[in-house]
Design a protein around this nucleic acid. Structure first.
Lengths: 104, 104
DNA sequence: TTGACATTTCGAGAAAATGCGATATAATAG
DNA sequence: CTATTATATCGCATTTTCTCGAAATGTCAA
């Protein structure tokens, strides 16, 4: 967990919003909640296109932001066919909160 | 506690460093740990000049950064004579960590 | 193979943050 | 009052971030 990278990733309204949406994918992305292909189950994973529609932001920007969140380990990604699914990485969020309470 | 403002304030190496230094003012600012004037005791408060020296950054920049930390309520300020003393606001840090664990 | 669709990467202009020096304001000492 | 010291504010050049559209890459279906 790189605290500096996490802070940089969280310092953006849209990226924060994406993380909050991903907390409740069933309701926030009703069209796509669970993808099972060839036995692969990436629960809670949402594809880039769905997030674009929800955010009303260009696809290239969302892809870029998801990459920033991924590098900060705030989300995990999994490629299923032509889709890349993203979901929250709760562990990093928990560790980051812990860092604030102990090291900051 | 405005989480968005806190995140913006924390997304900077120097401001993060200042907060960490202020956690241990006795050792980080050995020249000025406690100021008592006219019965006023702002424990842990450190003046702007001391922080400038410690950081090796211009006075105008440090003053500006302390203002950003103040607006985010990450520090408290107290004017004593011609000095403005700053110290950490632990309550905001605690609340921010709580926010991450519950609302993010 | 070709076409269609999903995502990533590239290039660029706009907007915001960084951090400085100069200047202004505030407070004290003499 | 004046000089000195501490801090805050202003203006600015530089760097970074934001965000887009275009182009490239990857994947599947026909």
């Amino acid at each position: 967990m790189n605290a500096r990278e996490v802070l940089k990733a969280l310092d953006n309204d849209i990226r924060l919003q994406i993380l909050r949406w991903l907390k409740d994918p069933c309701n926030q992305f009703p069209d796509q909640t669970r993808v099972i292909i060839d036995g692969v189950d990436f629960e809670g994973g949402v594809c880039v296109g769905s997030i674009c529609i929800r955010a009303g932001i260009s696809q290239s920007t969302i892809s870029h932001y998801l990459d920033i969140l991924l590098r900060a380990e705030l989300v995990e990604a999994y490629r299923v066919g032509k889709w890349t699914l993203y979901r929250r990485n709760e562990e990093t969020i928990r560790r980051f909160a812990e860092y604030l309470l102990t090291e900051l």
